[in-house]
Structure formats: C-alpha cells, structure tokens
C-alpha cells in the first residue's frame, strides 16, 4: 500500500500508505521546485533567451525543463555499478528500483546517461549542450518560431565550434551529441506519462 515516487529528486521516494496522494505529491513538489527554478535561472543566462517573448520562454521551459534536468543529473546514474544516487544522498541499486516499480523508463535513463557520460564533455560544453536541449524542445505553442530557430542555430553553431576546436581529430562527437536530442524527447514523453499516471492513479 506504500506510495512510490522513485524520482532521484524526491527526498522521500517511498511514502507510507497512510499519507494521502496529495500530501505525497506536495512533498515531492517541494523537492523538484528548486531544481525547476534553477533551470529557469539557467535559461535566463542563455544569450538571446530573454529576447524571446515571455510566452515563448514559458513554452520552451514547459517542454524542456525535464530534459535539461536529465542532462544535468545524469551523473547520478552509475551505469557501472547499476545504481542511482538520489539527491537525498541515498543510493538505490537497480534491483531495488525495479522492486519499486521502475521499469523501462529507468533502463532508458541508464542508457542515456551511459551514452552521454562516455562522451566526456567539459562543464562548459555540457552547459552549451543544455542550452541547445532547451531551445530544441517541442515547438507546440511557440508563437515566434523563427526567433526560436535562429537562437537554436546560433547555439548549435557555438556548440559545434567549441567541440570541434577542442577535438580537431574527432569529427564524430558533435553529430553523436545531436543524436541524443531525440533520445531526450522520448525520455521526456515517457517521464510525463509516468508522473501523470501517479497523479491519476497513485
């Protein structure tokens, strides 16, 4: 009867059955709100982002926040040890997370983290990649698509320039990195479904 919300940002991933679903959600919401605020602050630091209309900023953040967080926290997923360290400091093995009902989403997150981790990006490269991730988010609801496309083009150029100048002998890294964008989209959809399922039927 325990209520399970096994997200690495959740300080209390397993709640007793006596707690109401709303209480469990409110507690989880308090855990992820600071992380979402940090993504908003990060977005504001992207050159050109604040030139977009506020409506379009909100639309990009709505569809891109989870994807940015997935990149930011992919180091919490230890593919070698097959374990995830939550932000509360506790480490959960893959087996224990499976017992908590984490299935294909968890596998996809490990897969993504392993692929991204293997690229060995520097912190500034990772930050620029996160900026590309954010402006590459779902365009539904965007009013000025041209402005978002222009910003995306500028950021992709900057990322390509940074990566290729540091690794002139490796022409494969940049295209490999861009291939992670559709992976993130798929993860985002899967993750939304999982959270909505909890909201509808905890």
């Amino acid at each position: 009867g325990a209520k399970v919300l096994a997200c690495p940002l959740n300080a209390c991933p397993v709640a007793p059955a006596s707690r109401s679903s709303q209480e469990v959600w409110d507690s989880f919401s308090q855990c992820f709100t600071p992380a979402v605020r940090e993504v908003v602050e990060f977005a504001k630091s992207i050159p050109g982002f604040q030139s977009l209309s506020q409506h379009d900023q909100v639309m990009l953040l709505k569809s891109g926040t989870f994807q940015v967080l997935m990149v930011r926290f992919c180091s919490l997923f230890d593919a070698k040890e097959r374990a995830v360290t939550f932000l509360n400091g506790q480490t959960y093995s893959l087996a224990s997370l499976r017992a908590l009902g984490m299935g294909s989403l968890l596998d996809a997150m490990f897969d993504f983290s392993e692929k991204l981790g293997s690229m060995g990006l520097e912190p500034d490269e990772m930050a620029l990649f996160m900026a590309v991730v954010l402006v590459s988010a779902d365009r539904s609801g965007i009013v000025d698509v041209g402005a978002v496309e222009q910003l995306q083009e500028n950021l992709i150029k900057a990322l390509r320039s940074l990566i290729t100048s540091r690794r002139p002998d490796d022409s494969t890294l940049f295209p490999k990195l861009l291939l992670r964008l559709p992976d993130l989209r798929t993860l985002n959809n899967h993750h939304s479904d999982k959270l909505l399922a909890f909201r509808i039927d905890p």
Partner: peptide, 27 residues
C-alpha cells in the same frame, strides 16, 4: 490531462520564476 506541464504544476513554477525576475527588474 492533455498538457502534462500544467497538470504537474510545472507551468506555475516556471511562470513565477520568470515573473519574479521581471518584478526584481522593475524594482
């Protein structure tokens, strides 16, 4: 439930974080 970000409360948090910045700038 056709807009996950609304139903998960994400949009509200995002708007407040963006608006907070606007209010600070106005001050």
């Amino acid at each position: 439930f056709n807009d996950p970000a609304n139903n998960l409360g994400l949009e509200d948090i995002i708007r407040k974080a963006l608006m907070g910045n606007l209010e600070e700038r106005q001050e």
